[in-house]
């Protein structure tokens, strides 16, 4: 076989190989993503929707530039293969100013386009900014604990663990902090992106759900042994059902008092969903203030690994 033939053969083989791999992979992916319900692309609220659009948009623009470039590279690799006698070998080819300028200006222009998208969208999707749909946002305070999420409803004076119920079409401001827990990250992918929950800090994350349903949430940042199980559900209900649910929670007497909170602070995995009919109004502030200023005298004994119950 001539080298030319051999090469054609190798290229055909490589293309066949890649075709089979990507064809198979594609079919597999399509099959198993048919009914996904979680993730940034299955959006159930305006923030997630805008973020998903941004992902698609940036993907599209970059792909539009990248694919031709890469194809050109492979095309040249094929065209100027040694065995191709028709291609002209030009080892002394000179690359003039125009070529060099294009090489720099072209990606700069593409990045300028991306930059003009990036700055405004970053401002518009500032997580601190309440979602504006004409309704004032409600506040839900979130405390990351090891390894569970505590939700405080200051307006309703109720609290829940590992489950948060919010009304549909109602802007929500999640005020994130943590207690005796390493940096955690609060994430409900169906509703929008994440922010860190850190001791002594409040991060405000504004989200809104536009569809009734149960959406899973988690900590996206590793914060210890029970991290993988630190999941919660976001239940989105109608406004009426939300009112009913609040009444139910308030009715079933189970106050989040000092003992109950001390128990919650103990590390535990897969804590059951719990609701509390009331809590001390200054609980959230106390949790934050605990980490402000000099706290060297603080009793940290409860924070050791010994307290770890499963």
């Amino acid at each position: 076989m001539s080298t030319q033939h051999k090469h054609k053969h190798a290229v055909a083989k490589a293309i066949l190989f890649l075709g089979v791999v990507f064809g198979g992979l594609g079919a597999y992916i399509v099959h198993f993503t048919k009914d996904i319900r979680v993730g940034p692309l299955t959006t159930k609220g305006p923030i997630a929707a805008e973020q998903a659009n941004l992902i698609y948009l940036s993907l599209g623009i970059v792909l539009a530039v990248l694919v031709p470039t890469i194809l050109l590279l492979y095309f040249f690799a094929w065209k100027y293969r040694e065995s191709n006698n028709k291609a002209v070998y030009k080892p002394g080819a000179h690359h003039g100013k125009a070529f060099v300028m294009t090489m720099w200006i072209f990606p700069t222009l593409v990045m300028l386009v991306l930059a003009f998208i990036l700055v405004p969208v970053t401002r518009r999707l500032d997580p601190r900014k309440p979602v504006n749909n004409g309704t004032a946002p409600i506040t839900i305070q979130v405390v990351a604990l090891r390894w569970k999420w505590l939700f405080l409803y200051p307006e309703q004076q109720i609290a829940t663990v590992n489950s948060v119920t919010i009304p549909k079409d109602q802007p929500v401001t999640f005020e994130l902090t943590a207690d005796e827990t390493p940096m955690s990250s609060f994430w409900i992918p169906n509703l929008g992106g994440m922010l860190y929950a850190m001791t002594g800090h409040v991060n405000r994350l504004n989200l809104m759900a536009t569809a009734i349903g149960d959406y899973s949430g988690s900590s996206a940042e590793i914060n210890g042994a029970g991290f993988a199980g630190m999941r919660f559900t976001a239940n989105v209900t109608s406004k009426q059902d939300f009112g009913k649910w609040v009444n139910q929670v308030q009715y079933k007497t189970n106050p989040l008092d000092d003992t109950a909170y001390a128990n919650l602070r103990k590390p535990s995995e897969a804590a059951p969903v719990t609701t509390y009919s009331t809590y001390a109004p200054d609980l959230y502030n106390t949790i934050i203030m605990k980490y402000m200023g000099d706290m060297s005298g603080m009793d940290m004994s409860s924070m050791n690994h010994e307290g770890h119950t499963k």
Binding site: E50, L54, V62, I117, L118, P189, G192, G193, A220
Partner: peptide, 16 residues
């Protein structure tokens, strides 16, 4: 990487 460079997109993809 370029997708992750957009902060709002990164909010959804960070640590994923």
């Amino acid at each position: 990487g370029l997708i992750l460079a957009f902060p709002p997109a990164d909010f959804q993809l960070h640590n994923s």
